[in-house]
């Protein structure tokens, strides 16, 4: 069964990729880390630098939301068809 993941890019990530919404399709439900890796591959080096560290792991400073809830730090949940993943790069004042 096709698994479509809706992505929302915010902050510096939105600036880097030039869009706020995106979608990824997989053959089956995927883990969060796989979705982020696929997004990095799809959107190129600027996105990759923000999404993944040098070891290809999820950047520690990202704030990730699935649906309306934050993904607990360190967990890698399975995203089902239709899931919305919001990727927030922390922002500040000034």
């Amino acid at each position: 069964m096709l698994c479509k993941i809706h992505l929302v890019y915010t902050g510096q990530l939105r600036s880097a990729v030039g869009m706020s919404e995106d979608a990824l399709e997989f053959a089956q439900p995927v883990r969060l880390s796989e979705a982020l890796t696929a997004a990095a591959e799809k959107r190129g080096a600027a996105a990759r630098r923000i999404l993944l560290n040098e070891d290809g792991k999820i950047q520690r400073a990202l704030v990730l939301m699935v649906g309306g809830a934050q993904v607990p730090r360190g967990s890698d949940p399975v995203l089902e068809n239709g899931a919305q993943l919001t990727i927030m790069t922390p922002i500040s004042g000034g």
Binding site: G11, Q12, L13, A16, R49, I50, Q59, R60, A61, L62, V63, R73, T89, P90, I91, S92
Partner: peptide, 8 residues
């Protein structure tokens, strides 16, 4: 936010 974000 546990550390300074690299993209900031």
């Amino acid at each position: 936010v546990p550390s300074v974000p690299p993209a900031w």
